[in-house]
């Protein structure tokens, strides 16, 4: 479906009942699809179930989470009590602020510098261009774990231990973004830039006012993927962070993975997990198209 027909479909969205009748009629006219529908339904239910269990358990009483036989739905509905307890157990608001700060900076810096570098590689000639490009590209091939120890020592010698700088700066750029932006920048016709140059526009202005707006769809895809990647990033924050004040969500909530206390709080852990996943779920629901494009182009999965 093209974008325009999609928009038209949204504008004239029929009522739920009518859509259900259309769906039934479609099934009746093409009975062959029932088998595919059944397989896809089984796949979707089995893959989505753990997340359903996470959300539903966050509303259960503690004794219900591991009850035998299994409580498939909350029977002793707790409302938001587990969420309230979660906020009392760990400084979740602080973790959220830190995670949003890190993801926000990662997104903005990655998008702007990737667009700049991608544009530079696509539309300019300069000495060492090939070498620089191969160098930037090679960073995609090297797994992060290889960098872990030496990068930590580097940050340590810079005095950035346990600080926002140490947490955020090493992960602020992404070579994949450069590669992706370069592909999109190639497609921009040279005449656009040349015309602006004739009119006396400076190169930074041409980039900011002509090139960057044309890369906005690619930027959106890159932005949502970098956000997800950054929000879920675990290994580097685990190593750099020591104090609660700069802890991000995934590191902060590890206390719930291996409960040492005699009284595990599984229902609270489920509330925390639901909250930790909520931002990316919302992002996915609202920006699905960009997400999928970004995923397909990137292969990023932290």
């Amino acid at each position: 479906m093209t974008e325009m027909t999609q928009q038209a479909a949204v504008r004239t969205r029929p009522t739920l009942g009518k859509r259900f009748r259309l769906w039934l009629a479609d099934l009746r006219h093409h009975p062959g699809q029932v088998i595919w529908l059944a397989i896809a339904l089984a796949l979707a239910v089995s893959f989505a179930f753990p997340l359903y269990f996470m959300i539903s358990s966050s509303f259960k009483a503690e004794s219900e989470v591991l009850a035998i036989p299994v409580h498939w739905t909350p029977q002793d509905f707790q409302g938001l009590l587990n969420y309230q307890r979660a906020l009392e157990t760990v400084p979740l608001a602080r973790y959220f602020m830190n995670s949003f700060l890190m993801a926000g900076i990662d997104v903005v810096v990655t998008v702007i510098f990737s667009a700049m570098a991608g544009y530079g590689f696509a539309k300019f000639d300069f000495p060492l261009k090939r070498l620089f490009f191969v160098f930037v590209l090679s960073t995609i091939m090297v797994p992060f774990q290889i960098l872990l120890v030496p990068l930590f020592i580097e940050i340590h010698s810079l005095g950035w231990d346990d600080s926002y700088a140490g947490l955020i700066i090493p992960g602020i750029m992404n070579a994949f973004g450069v590669f992706m932006m370069r592909q999109f920048a190639y497609a921009i016709p040279d005449e656009l830039m040349d015309a602006a140059r004739m009119d006396g526009a400076s190169e930074p202005r041409i980039f900011a006012q002509i090139v960057f707006p044309l890369l906005s769809s690619a930027s959106a895809s890159l932005a949502v993927i970098i956000f997800l990647f950054s929000w879920n990033n675990f290994l580097w924050p685990l190593i750099v962070i020591k104090s609660q004040e700069i802890m991000t969500v995934p590191v902060g909530i590890t206390v719930f993975t291996q409960p040492h206390s005699a009284q595990p709080q599984w229902a609270v852990a489920m509330a925390v997990s639901t909250l930790a996943t909520l931002p990316v779920m919302l992002l996915f629901v609202f920006f699905q198209r960009y997400f999928i494009e970004g995923f397909v182009l990137s292969g990023l999965k932290g």
Binding site: Q33, V34, A40, L43, V45, F47, L51, F53, V251, S273
Partner: peptide
């Protein structure tokens, strides 16, 4: 394949990609 309800089922199927591995760990512990 083309079948009614494909898009919504695809979204549900895709959901496990979204949570961080720490959340995945907590959920599967249970």
């Amino acid at each position: 394949q083309r079948f009614a309800g494909r898009e919504i089922l695809k979204v549900l199927f895709f959901a496990p990609v979204l949570p961080s591995l720490v959340v995945v760990a907590i959920v599967w512990r249970i």
